[in-house]
């Protein structure tokens, strides 16, 4: 709206800046290489016996990959915090309610 010149709740740098200040092409490729390496490590658990570390290491690698894509490729790390709040609200709510629901099935005791 042409007349809507409002800036009341902590105006941030606009979206374009966030992206431009995000990362270089080189940076993106580095992230992708790290992601590829972690994936290779994940797949290796199928061939190599990790013993008791198997489950925790897989879950940790999954979480690391997840947040690397969210933070760097989706720019949440550089973007306005409001975006993070909105997305993580849904994410953690989902984790919370579904883990609780599975717990009532004694899923984690099996």
């Amino acid at each position: 709206m042409t007349t809507d010149t409002t800036h009341n709740t902590a105006p941030s740098h606009g979206t374009d800046h966030a992206v431009e200040h995000g990362m270089s092409t080189r940076g993106y490729i580095n992230i992708a290489l790290i992601l590829a390496a972690i994936t290779a490590l994940e797949v290796s658990t199928y061939y190599v016996d990790f013993g008791p570390l198997f489950l925790p290491s897989l879950l940790i690698m999954m979480v690391v990959k997840f947040f690397m894509v969210v933070s760097y490729f989706m720019h949440l790390k550089f973007d306005n915090k409001l975006f993070s709040w909105l997305f993580y609200a849904g994410l953690f709510l989902a984790v919370g309610v579904y883990v609780a629901a599975l717990a009532t099935f004694h899923f984690f005791l099996r």
Partner: peptide, 28 residues
């Protein structure tokens, strides 16, 4: 360049809200 209350773009806010919602879908 629309000037919004938060200074953020409408579509981008909408998209992040949608993705937050999708977490509950795939979670289920």
């Amino acid at each position: 360049a629309h000037v919004t209350s938060t200074g953020l773009s409408n579509v981008k806010l909408g998209m992040w809200l949608f993705l937050g919602s999708e977490c509950l879908l795939f979670g289920g």
